[in-house]
Amino acid sequence: MYDFLYHKVNSVDDAVAAMGNADDGKFVAGGQTMLPTMKHRLASPSDVIDLGGVSDLVGIANEGDALVIGAMTTHAAVAASAEVQSAIPALAKLAGNIGDPAVRNRGTLGGSIANNDPAADYPAAVIALGATVKTNKREITGDDFFTGMFETALEEDELITAVSFPIPMTAAYIKFENPASRYAIVGVFIAKTVDGNRVAITGATPCAYRGMKFEKVLNEDFSSNACDAVEVSVDRMNSDIHASAEYRAHLVKVMVKRAVDACG
């Protein structure tokens, strides 16, 4: 990778200030995607601002109706958290199946959603649970946060501080994973809430999305059989060496049905 100016910061304010002074700066969280991207020279920032020392961004708190997880909390910490396991077990399970143990010890919630890889797991949870992404400037709803492939609503100098996940009645995440990378070829998160059912799909299209058609039929009849009535269009589906667009469209319905069954 090309060299860069390295900045270690201890606070969100210092991080934002360092970004303001940089020509073409990048925040780095756990670096599990960013460092490989820089090695490939797909990114070559002038300045790298390391959030690893910002302790305010780490932690998990149960606020009664929501779990608030700091942006720099690692996947391993979310997976192992008794708080998450009891309030939203599907979220702990999702975090525990990202990558592999060493990657989970470095990779973070904030890094994952800021990167918004089309095959990442967390975006499905953020959308389906109706989470709120908190930044140093504002609060963004999960529905508005993910805007396209590797694109989010974040501005250049905007930093995720935490994500607030409302606690559902029940939820499940099922993914058909790439056996080598554990990325989702198709992943489906379903949350049953007092306001209805929410379905989010990742891996299938350039950006995770809400499965509104599935939500409609599931709000009338929460059963996997009811999902048979939904047609999944192949038009927007990703197609690559791992799965064709037609196969992904097929998998979407299969994974939704499995997630419905897993909700019990």
């Binding site: 670096g31 460092l35 490989p36 390391d50 060493a102 470095r106």
Partner: peptide, 23 residues
Amino acid sequence: DTSQCGACVVHVDGKSVKACTML
């Protein structure tokens, strides 16, 4: 060198990490 094979695993503060994917 792409954080997949694990030949570079070391412990940092007691936790396993891939040393090829950490500065």
